[in-house]
Computed example of a mutant assay.
Amino acid sequence: MKISKIIHYCWFGKGEMSSLEKRCMASWKKHCPDFQIKLWNEENFDVNYCEFTREAYRLGKYAFVSDVARLFALYQEGGIYLDTDILLLKPIPLHFFKQKLFIGAENKSSLNAAAFGAEKGHQLIYNLLSFYSSQLYGSESPLITESLSNIIVDIDFPILGNQKKEWGLILNPDVFYPLPYKNKALSFNKFITVETVGVHLWNASWKSEDSKNKLFKWLKYQLSKIYLPNSPQWYKEKFR
């Protein structure tokens, strides 16, 4: 096998995992019982690896640190990387491990790096690491899905089936992304197919916590106006 039986995942910031993430990780152990599962965090990844990770970590943008840490892990050790919101539904097929690299398409026109694997020292992973090493983190910094398109140029779009390339295998969306992002609030069961190995549940940890909190407070404020119309204004203002 070219790809090692190691599942890498990242968790920076020392916050608590949600029940969704714990459920997903339990599915890894269930369907990959003979795999090593390795956590990457501040203890074993240098957040000052490059200017991009240093600034992203300083600002608490941990998902962007994870973008680089996952690449570092695969380049140094090989194996599989999984986002903590990837729910496995069955074992990862053995033929994936015979590839130099495998990565899933999110849809017909783009790739996603929430679930992918590579052999140790793969040139494409090195190229992606070099890309980040030349970047400065900012509000307009690309997600890793966008960075992939800057590096991988020989994809045949639209992606309608698996594509074998010299450097690895591109998997069609049904394999890891049967549930479209726009339908993330729906049950994934109606979207899975016989090819589905896992489902990305779109926890969207790359989104700003501030934006999430503002949305939550706005919803509470709107509900207070509907269900508590006679409440004092100071009480409603708590939810602005």
Rank of each mutant, 00 (worst) to 15 (best):
I3S: 15
I3E: 15
I3K: 15
K5D: 09
I7H: 11
Y9P: 06
C10N: 15
F12R: 15
G13L: 12
K14E: 15
G15K: 14
E16W: 03
M17T: 03
M17C: 07
M17P: 09
L20H: 07
R23H: 05
M25I: 06
A26K: 14
W28F: 01
W28N: 05
W28P: 09
K30L: 08
H31T: 02
D34M: 01
L39Y: 10
D46Y: 08
V47W: 13
N48Y: 05
E55Y: 05
L59N: 12
V65A: 15
S66C: 13
D67S: 10
L71S: 07
L71G: 10
A73V: 01
A73R: 13
A73E: 07
L74G: 01
E77D: 14
G78L: 06
G79E: 11
Y81K: 03
Y81F: 07
L82E: 06
D85G: 02
D85S: 01
I86P: 13
L88C: 05
L89E: 08
I92E: 14
F97H: 10
K100M: 03
L101C: 04
L101P: 04
I103H: 03
A105P: 04
E106S: 00
L111N: 01
N112W: 00
A114K: 12
A115P: 06
F116W: 13
F116A: 04
F116S: 06
E119H: 02
K120Y: 04
G121V: 03
G121S: 08
H122F: 08
S130P: 11
S133L: 09
S134E: 13
Q135A: 09
L136R: 14
L136P: 11
G138K: 10
S139P: 15
P142Y: 04
E146W: 05
S147L: 08
S147N: 14
I152C: 13
I152K: 10
D154R: 03
F157W: 11
P158A: 00
G161H: 10
G161R: 13
G161V: 02
Q163F: 02
G168Y: 04
L169N: 08
L171H: 06
P173G: 01
D174W: 02
D174Y: 02
P180Y: 00
K182L: 07
K184S: 02
K184T: 00
N189P: 07
I192G: 05
I192E: 12
T193S: 15
T193K: 13
T193N: 09
V194T: 11
V199Y: 08
W206Q: 15
W206G: 11
K207E: 15
S211L: 13
K212M: 09
K217E: 12
K217I: 01
K217W: 06
K220E: 06
Y221Q: 15
Q222S: 03
L223F: 04
S224W: 05
S224T: 04
Y227N: 06
L228G: 09
S231Q: 14
S231C: 09
Q233L: 08
Q233I: 02
F239H: 14
